[in-house]
Structures are given as structure tokens and as C-alpha cells.
Amino acid sequence: MKYQEFQPCALLKPYIKCYYLFEVSTEVPFEDQAFATGCMEVMFNLGSGHWQISTGNQFVTNPRVELWGQIIQPLTFRSIGHNIMLGARFFPHTAACFLQDEIQQFNDGVTDFHVIGGNGVQILHEQLLEAASLQQRLALLENYLLDQLTTKAKHWNKFLLVNNVMRELQRDDFFENITQVAHRQGVSLRHLQKVFQEYTGLSPKLYSKIHRFQNSLLKVAQQDLSLTSIAYNCGYFDQSHFIRDFKTFTGFAPSSFSPERSSVLFASPNK
């Protein structure tokens, strides 16, 4: 398993957290889980294998170009054969700047990006497969995103509102009611919640919980703090509150998490 991250150009830095290359090559299926990150991603499979997700009692093969919506419930996936996943990870509120569809409809699912992006995505995928180097592939992906941002940019005032609210929700010392945040931003609570959901697919409260969970996940992976200390450092009311939230987003207790057997830390926007 090989994972690398790459930074976008200056024009895309406010929208793209990173590009990444995730390569897995195994003779037996490699199985893992994805947890809530608050971010959406687009992935192009440039390998010869298959990328699959679990739907109930069976695995289904993903499309060759896939859009990952907001994953809220833990999602099991597996890699079969040789997969080279070239991806773009958006910030929690920026995928909406590249898509015309309602962001929330993609929650807890993987969608065929060919269907959403049309012929342009098909052409890009073919170009990525034919590119001679990683640098060429990154340039192709970046040019596509720049073009989409130009043609599908949303209202700037709404974007700035969500950006400002997210900064407040991400503070370690944030314990306020979201109504107070709306008041400081000069908008009604209803308007704030509507715009926030429009851009992120999440309510402000759920986003705040995911952000706090990701902070706790990184600390659990370090394996050098007690659960009580992690709960305190991450802003939970107590240890039981922390464990309850951790179970909600992973399906198991923090004491059962094995970072050496998981790829979820790669995708964490909080690292």
C-alpha cells in the first residue's frame, strides 16, 4: 500500500485540500473501512484492478471514476488486484463549487462521476490513462478543475459565510450555540443552516461532531494518551460521550482501533 499527497496550485488552494495517489496491489482482496471526514473526493482508477464497496451482504464494483459523497456511516471497501487511485480531496464546503447537483444527495454513497460530469470526465479519464508521468496526470486533473471552477462557481457571499462558520466550528474552544454564530455573521439561524447544508451536505452540528471525531481519531492512533485525556483534549463532555461518538462514526470502541491495519488516517483532513 502506497500513499502520497500533492498540493494544488495557488488558485485552487482555497478549494482543494490535496491531490493524492493511493496504490494497492495484492493477490488477495485488501479490505478496509472509510469513516466520516467531512470532505468529499473524486477518484480516478488508473490501474487494472477493481475497487469495491459493501452494500449490505455483498460487494459491488465501483465505476472507474467515482465521486465519494459525505461518508457519515462507516463504509467498508476493498481493493482487488492492482489499483492506482488518483484523487482530489475537497475541503468540506468546496465540492459544491464544482458541481451543479445538490451535494446532500451524494451522502453515504459512491456515485459514477462520468454520469455527473459527462463527456468531459470521460475525456479526462482517457487522458490520465495515456499520460506518461504523474506530473502530467496532476496537470491534467488540475486544468480540469480550474475549468469547472470557472464555469460552475457559486455565489461568493454564501461561500464566505460557510467558510467563516466552519472556522468557528473548528476552534478547539468552541462550545457555543450555533444561534450565536448566526448572530455574529449577521444572518438568521435558518439561513445559516440552509446555506451550510447546501455547501457541505451536513448540518453545522453534524459537521462539528465529525471534526471533533477526526481530532480524536488522530489522537487514538498515536496510542500515547488515555481515553479520558483524549476526551478532554478534543472537547467532549466526558469519556463516555467520546466513546459513544467514536462508536457512532466507526462501529466500534476506540480501544479496538488498529491504525497499523487501516488507511483511514490518510484521508483525515485534520492531520
Rank of each mutant, 00 (worst) to 15 (best):
L161R: 04
H114G: 06
I123A: 11
Y232P: 00
E142I: 05
I103W: 02
L265M: 14
Q122P: 00
L160A: 07
P14L: 13
D112F: 07
W51G: 00
F98E: 01
I116L: 07
Q197R: 14
H183N: 15
A182H: 06
G81T: 08
I84H: 08
L192T: 03
M40V: 04
Y236V: 02
L189D: 04
R89W: 02
F266N: 14
E130Y: 08
Q100P: 00
L140T: 09
A95G: 02
Q148L: 12
L225H: 13
E198A: 09
T111W: 02
D101G: 09
V264D: 03
Q4F: 15
K158H: 13
K271I: 06
Q135F: 10
H82P: 00
I84R: 14
K154T: 02
C9T: 14
D108I: 05
Q4H: 09
C9N: 13
E5G: 01
Q197T: 13
G87I: 03
F77M: 05
I123H: 14
I103K: 05
E102P: 02
L217R: 12
A231F: 14
Y20R: 12
F90A: 03
K271Y: 09
K158F: 06
F98K: 00
S208A: 14
E41D: 14
D112T: 09
Q148F: 08
L227P: 00
T37H: 08
G120P: 00
S268R: 03
L218C: 15
T150C: 04
T94F: 03
E5F: 04
N177A: 12
L192F: 09
V121K: 06
A253V: 13
W156T: 12
K209P: 01
M166H: 01
M85E: 02
L217K: 08
Q100M: 07
I71L: 15
P254V: 11
Q136M: 06
F113L: 08
F98L: 12
I230G: 01
L227Y: 15
S79W: 11
L67I: 11
Q33F: 13
R89P: 00
E66K: 05
E5K: 12
T26N: 10
Q105P: 00
P254Y: 14
V264P: 05
W156E: 14
L225Y: 12
T200H: 06
L206N: 04
I178P: 01
N164H: 10
S25H: 08
M43P: 00
V162Q: 04
S268M: 11
L140S: 04
E168I: 12
L218S: 14
K209G: 02
L141Y: 00
V187E: 07
N233Y: 12
F246A: 10
P63W: 10
L189F: 13
I103C: 05
I178V: 06
A96N: 04
P204T: 11
S229R: 11
V162K: 04
E41Y: 05
Y19T: 14
F237W: 06
F91D: 01
E198L: 07
T111I: 08
T248P: 00
E130I: 09
T61I: 11
K205E: 14
S25K: 12
A253R: 03
N57A: 07
D108M: 06
A10R: 13
E260Y: 10
N157K: 09
K17N: 05
W51I: 07
E168P: 01
S240V: 15
T76R: 12
L67P: 01
P63I: 06
N177Y: 07
I210V: 09
N270V: 14
E5L: 02
